[in-house]
Every structure is written in C-alpha cells, then in structure tokens.
C-alpha cells in the first residue's frame, strides 16, 4: 500500500542556511520523510524536499504515541565528538573527547546532558555513545 507520511505544521518562518534545507513559512503543512535524532528532519513540501529543524514543527494531529523519550536521570554515557561553546544560557560548553551523561534526548536535537554538577543542552550531533567509535 501507499506509505502514509506524518504531517506537521510549521510554527515559525524558517530560512535555509545551507543548500539541502528548504525555506518554509508559518502555517505550511509538510510531510516528514525522515526524523533524524540530530534534530534535522527531512520533509516534503509541494515539489520541494529538504531538511528543516524539528523544533519548527508541531504534529498536525496528536501522534499516537509520545515521540519523545522521558528523561532518564540515571543517564547514558556519551563522548563528545566535537567541542561546542554555549551560545545560550541553558546550554553547556564541552571540549572534544569529554565523557558526559545524557539525561534527556529531545526531538529538537539539543539533548540535556550532565557533566559533574553542570547540566545543559548540547547538540546531539556532536555526541557518540561511549564505548563506540564514530562511523
């Protein structure tokens, strides 16, 4: 049978910053082809296809099950694959190769991580699971 794609509504204007993204306006309805954990979702809008940030979308209908995991306060160990310097107050700065604990995997790709006493959002695309090598 046909593949039914989830429809999402764009909640804020989005202007592309690289060639495989697409420009969208508030209220546009898009179909999602792929939901990447890093927070970029591949979508289809009219004849256009490209990546847009999950945080600019909301489900048109309530999804059947929660899409987002609950926080896991015990956490999972990850290692930073790149350094990142916090740009907003709720983010955390980390160097390359630091082992941290992920306590909440958010759909927008900005996971909540803990290092010692410090907690903040960090881009999931700069993390890989501890004990594995980045492919």
């Amino acid at each position: 049978g046909p593949i039914i794609l989830d429809t999402y509504r764009v909640i804020a204007d989005f202007e592309k910053t690289s060639k495989h993204e697409i420009n969208l306006q508030t209220g546009d309805l898009v179909e999602i082809v792929e939901k990447n954990q890093n927070g970029w979702w591949f979508c289809q809008y009219e004849s256009k296809r490209g990546w847009i940030p999950a945080s600019y979308l909301e489900p048109l209908d309530g999804p059947e099950e929660a899409e987002e995991d609950e926080p896991n306060y015990e956490g999972e160990r990850f290692v930073t694959a790149r350094a990142y310097t916090a740009e907003q107050e709720d983010e955390i700065s980390l160097e390359l190769g630091e082992t941290i604990t992920v306590i909440h995997k958010l759909l927008d790709g900005w996971w909540v991580v803990r290092k010692g006493e410090e907690t903040g959002h960090f881009p999931s695309m700069f993390l890989h699971k501890a004990g594995t090598r980045e492919i």
């Binding site: 909640i11 495989h20 890093n38 940030p53 999950a54 929660a66 899409e67 927008d108 695309m125």
Partner: peptide, 22 residues
C-alpha cells in the same frame, strides 16, 4: 548528498513558538 542532514546543529526552537510538547 541531499540524504545527508546538514552538518551544523539545528537552530534552537524559535523563542515565542516553542513546540508544544506532547
């Protein structure tokens, strides 16, 4: 390749339109 997502982290949620968490 278009199948590969952008290499930069996605922008944080737009401040006044934070996604309604389900």
């Amino acid at each position: 390749d278009i199948k590969n997502p952008p290499q930069n982290p996605p922008p944080r949620p737009p401040p006044e339109t934070r996604r309604k968490r389900v």
